[in-house]
């Protein structure tokens, strides 16, 4: 009995020793995460790059490698440049509105907290509320808001004023403006919180020093707050630009890229090429273009951290 026991004990000890040694190596801890990343991020990305070098299609069974042909065709396609233009307009105005609105709200909430004004919490919660609504539903909420009949809130009130109905989603320019507003409605929470966080890190002694020097409120904002916020503003801008460039669900639900192709940003263009025109290779080439844009902006983001460290 005792020999069997000690054998079992020894086995157990050996096992726990092996476990301990395994646990002392980082690989075991990292393996599941790295595996998930490799299979569900790296593999699809590699697949996208490979696909972009073929003429693969959803309706043809076979395909061959065509080298860089997809890219060459893309570059000579006026439609592609039109999408780039629309994406740039969408991203530019979204980012400007996000940052401006976020900055104003963050300052107002910070001011309210310090002055003990009421309603700063309600304001913050309201802005954040918009941010957690699922993208598809945001598209639909704004679709309902902008319906071109009395059912749409905006046209309802314009009607009261004797204006309209305004074709928010069927006029190309207005449709693009509508997507920008809906996007800003969702994303401002992010910039507001980031900038508010930045405001909390501004050393109070700087304000005191400025006040001693006789600086008024505007001067203090201009010469203390803004320079101190610069790193945060920069990082926030880069992040919002990345989000804006990759917007999909909201526009997909709000306008579907229309009217015509007036709101077809890159992600929707990619989707349409790949799944509605069945040109997987071409869609993949657009995906790679987006990937490169993402990587470039990430580079800027990392650079921003270095800048932030220096300050």
């Amino acid at each position: 009995m005792s020999t069997a026991d000690t054998a079992a004990e020894r086995l157990l000890e050996r096992a726990s020793d092996v476990i301990r040694r395994l646990l002392d190596h980082p690989l075991l801890w990292l393996a599941p995460a790295l595996l998930a990343l490799a299979v569900f991020q790296l593999y699809p990305m590699a697949e996208a790059i490979l696909m972009s070098l073929t003429n693969e299609s959803l309706i043809r069974p076979s395909f061959e490698f065509v080298g860089l042909e997809q890219y060459v065709r893309l570059a000579s396609d006026p439609q592609f440049w039109e999408m780039i233009r629309i994406t740039a307009i969408y991203a530019f105005f979204s980012v400007v509105l996000h940052v401006l609105l976020g900055l104003v709200l963050a300052l107002a909430i910070d001011y309210g907290v310090r002055r003990g004004l009421r309603g700063h919490l309600t304001t913050r919660v309201s802005v954040l509320l918009a941010w957690i609504v699922p993208g598809i539903i945001i598209g639909l909420v704004w679709k309902v808001m902008l319906v071109e009949s009395q059912f749409g809130a905006v046209n309802h009130f314009l009607g009261v004023l004797g204006i309209g109905p305004v074709p928010f989603r069927s006029d190309p320019t207005l449709a693009l403006i509508s997507t920008i507003i809906a996007g800003t409605w969702r994303g401002t929470a992010f910039t507001m919180i980031m900038i508010y966080g930045g405001l909390q890190r501004v050393p109070q002694r700087l304000y005191e020093a400025a006040r001693v020097d006789g600086a008024g409120r505007w001067d203090r904002f201009r010469h203390v707050t803004l320079p101190q916020l610069k790193p945060v503003l920069f990082i926030t801008t880069v992040l919002v630009t990345i989000y804006a460039l990759n917007t999909f669900d909201l526009i997909f639900a709000l306008t579907g890229g229309g009217p015509g192709r007036a709101t077809q940003v890159l992600a929707l263009f990619m989707y349409q090429e790949a799944f509605q025109d069945y040109a997987l290779g071409r869609g993949a080439a657009i995906a790679v273009v987006m990937l490169v844009a993402n990587l470039l902006l990430t580079g800027v983001y990392l650079y921003a951290f270095d800048v932030g460290d220096e300050i």
């Binding site: 990305m45 697949e47 996208a48 460039l245 995906a287 993402n294 990587l295």
Partner: peptide
């Protein structure tokens, strides 16, 4: 490795939808 993790955080998942079906 941490840098790689951060990089993946920054890249939008929208990019992989074209090959996703095949994958």
């Amino acid at each position: 490795l941490l840098g790689v993790v951060l990089l993946f955080q920054m890249i939008s998942p929208v990019i992989i939808i074209v090959p996703l079906y095949t994958v």
